[in-house]
Each structure stands twice: as C-alpha cells, then as structure tokens.
Design a protein around this nucleic acid. Structure first.
Lengths: 235, 235
DNA sequence: AAATTGTATTATGTATTACATAATGCACAA
DNA sequence: TTGTGCATTATGTAATACATAATACAATTT
C-alpha cells in the first residue's frame, strides 16, 4: 500500500475524552426541548449512573456547562437550566493582555461598524428625556470636535448613552465589555498614531441630528465623527 | 440599632467557593504578564501545593479556564496559555432553543447594525475578484428584490461573501455563528409576519454600488435592502 | 553516525471513597 | 401560627490510586 492509500484507509481516530463525550450528551439532553429554562436536570450521581461513568467525569462536564452559562448549580437543589448570558461569558474570557493583536484590531473595527449601524435603532427609540441627557453630557464641549477626541471619559459617557438609547441590552453590554479593549488598543501602539486632527462632527453635532435629523443623517455624521479612528485603521 | 445601621455594619459576606478564588488567582497569575501565549503554567500538583488546596479544586478551576479558552492542557506537557477564541466560545454557548426571546431579538438587531456599519470596510477592502464573485452569486437573481428575500441559502451566500470582503475574521465568524439564530428567529414566530413586500434594493443593486459607488451609498442601500427586517422589528 | 524502536518518566485523565456544607422540608414546641 | 431545630439530600472539597498519553532518552539496528 502506498502512503496515500494508507492515509485514506485510516480514518482519524476519535481522541475526545470521556468528559467531552459526556458534555456532548448533556447538551443534547438539554436541547432536546423537554427541558425549559428553570428546570433542574438529574443529579450528578444519577447522571453518572445513567451514563456509566464516575461522578468525577460528570462533575467536570457540568463544570464546563456552568462556565458556559448553560446551567447553574445549587446545593441540594441540583443544576438548573439557565439562559446563557452571552456578554457575561465573553467578558470572562476577554483579557486584552493575552489576546493577539489582530483580533484586538478586528474587535476595534467591529465597534466602529456597530456605532454607525445602530443609527436606526437610536432614531427609532430616542425619547425627549434622552435628548436632554445628551445635551447635559455635551454641555461643556466645544462645538467642533478636535483634540477632544482624547478625553476618554467624555467619550465613554456620550457613546455609552447612545448605546443605552439603542434599547438593545446586548449592544450596550457589548460596549461595556469592549471598553477595556479600546483602551488597550489605544495605549498599546497597535494602531498608527492619531493623524493630524481635522475638524469633524462633534458630539454636539450628533445630538443636533438625533433631535432633528434622520437615521441616514446620523449614520453619515457618525461615520464622520469616527473619521480619526478609521484613518488610523486604513491608510 | 436601626435596620439601616445594621445593614451598614454588616458587610456582605464572601460566598464564593474555593474554586472561585482559585480561578481568580490563576487568572491574575496569567495576566501578570510574566506569561505569554505558549508558555506553560505550573503543574496541577504544584498549584495545589502552592495555593494550599487539593488537586481537585485546582483541576476544576483549570477546567473553567479551559472552557473559556484561556488555556489548553496536554498530558505530560501541562497547561499552556492560549489566546482565547471569542467567537468559538460564543458558539459553544449559543443555543437558540434555550435562549430567551428578548436576547434573540437583540442579536437579530445587532446583525442588522453590523451589516450596515461595515460598509466602509467593504469599500476599503473589496477587490476586483470579489466583485466577480458577487456577480456570479447574484447572476440568477431578478433585478428587483421581492419574495426573493425568502430564499435563505442565497441570502447566506451573498451576505456571507460581504462579511468575507470586510476582511474581518471576527465579523465573519460572528455571522457564521449567528446564522442559526436568524433561522430560529424567522421560524419561531418571534417577529411579526413579513409585511407586504415592497420593492427594495436587490443584491444586484448592492453589487452595483460596491463596484461603482461609495461607502455612504452602500450604507443607505443596505439599510434599504434590510427594510423588511427593520419593518418587522419596529412598527 | 543516523534513524528507528523500546522504555522510563511525568503530568493529566478517570475512578473511588469519604466527609463538609448549604438548602430544603418537616416535626415539634412556644 | 410562628419559629426553631433536626434530618435529609445534593453539591463542594479532599485524598488516593491507577490509567493513559506525551516526552526524553537509551538501546538497537542499519
């Protein structure tokens, strides 16, 4: 037999550990729809018995599900199915210090896309109260954005409010979660230096548009407002 | 003492388990920057010894880190630090069947925002080859989008290609990952019925713009193209 | 000498047992 | 009825033993 024929006739062997298999089984069990959020699943010992493995293995598989946020465990009560908290999960594994540079840059890009793309949700859901809040936030800013881009806290406050207005919790928490990433990206020299700052749409300008303009206008204004960031990525 | 005074003098008790604490310690250890991706961390027994807990606890904490994608373990070699795969992680916990309705809707919204917001990246990075590919994909579509919105595979192919053009892996994998969610949302009756279909920008129209237009035009066209989805969310 | 095979070592993976601890329900007493 | 205490139960922690895979290194062969 040639080497090729050998490699053909030898299919890859399943190297998954016992825990892997048990984890899979458990997830299948959960998905099988007989279980709804809040239901408690069989006890560790029952599962161990049922699956013919030790409690150790079952526990390790359950630990994984717990880490993924699929279940929660309580003493005496056992494990109950929960709806997973995506953002919470990401948050737990998002350590800029140990992420590779490229992923960091891509996350940075994703934020820009989101801020522009959520214009419709902002315009649809903004309330008069929100407008007031925004005005209060930008009260002390100059009418034209320039070096102000560097005042991080102000940035966070303003854009955070926008996410809030979007009425989308996932988005909002996404932003919260990505803040450390932005901070890190800025400080790490990952991007090129901030280019000569031209005059762009300011926070005030954005508020004005949110109050009186359209989603389309807001998208364009936001794109312009973020020009500095785009410039650092492109070029 | 008044109830207020009592609640003041009684600080909340730390209910975190041993494993919780060990997990925290381990993460701190990793972050402390002495460790880089690829480095292996101390052996389970060493850690158990060092922290004064049993190997069981250490293992459970390590299992969590493994699940989060922060480390990988191999026999003999021990555990090595890895850069976490965010999308892979999300994928593992993303089961539409057990997620609550509201989160599903919000994720759906996020996709819309992303597709509109990534226009700049598409326009910046699209190649002639990409244009060819897009044209091939839409070759058999009518010039005006109507019921065609329902042809799921075509939708996936086209928009998937757009994500690819964006040159952002995180975005692309995000889309891959969210596909089951969209499918589920559509079928589950979570959103209102698809409204009377008007004529919107077709895939062909989008290609035309990508070839000859601007980022701004693409944003608007994409917004229009997605009108049906927006209409189902708003109203 | 180079390459392959065998072997010892080592660290993780799996199993078993024992006990601690917290939550729950029930019985009992004030 | 209310509250306290107790028994029960299932998870949390610990210790120990052995299995298994990866690695390095010695032994063997060419």
């Amino acid at each position: 037999m040639s080497a090729l024929e050998v490699s053909k006739s030898l299919q890859t062997i399943d190297t998954s550990s016992l825990v892997d298999k048990v984890e899979r089984k458990l997830i299948d069990l959960l998905i099988s729809k007989d279980f709804k959020v809040g239901d408690s699943i069989p006890k560790e010992l029952e599962l161990a018995d049922l699956l013919g493995v030790s409690r150790t293995v079952v526990r390790e598989a359950l630990t994984r599900l717990k880490t993924l946020g699929l279940i929660e465990t309580k003493k005496k009560r056992g494990a109950v199915l929960t709806n997973p908290d995506l953002t919470g999960l990401l948050e737990k594994s998002l350590y800029p210090e140990i992420m590779d540079k490229n992923t960091l840059r891509e996350i940075f890009e994703m934020r820009l896309a989101l801020e522009i793309g959520m214009a419709d949700f902002i315009m649809e859901r903004v309330t008069p109260k929100d407008i007031e809040d925004l005005k209060a936030i930008v009260a002390h800013e100059p009418a034209i954005a320039d070096q102000h881009l560097f005042q991080i806290e102000q940035e966070i406050k303003f854009h955070g409010k926008l996410y809030e207005i979007s009425g989308n919790q996932v988005l909002k928490r996404f932003q919260q979660m990505l803040l450390p990433v932005f901070d890190y990206v800025h400080r790490s020299g990952l991007l090129k230096k901030m280019p000569k700052t031209k005059k762009f749409v300011s926070h005030r300008g954005l508020v004005e548009i949110i109050e009186n303009g359209s989603a389309e206008m807001l998208r364009n204004a936001m794109r312009n407002h973020l020009e500095n960031h785009f410039a650092r990525i492109f070029e």
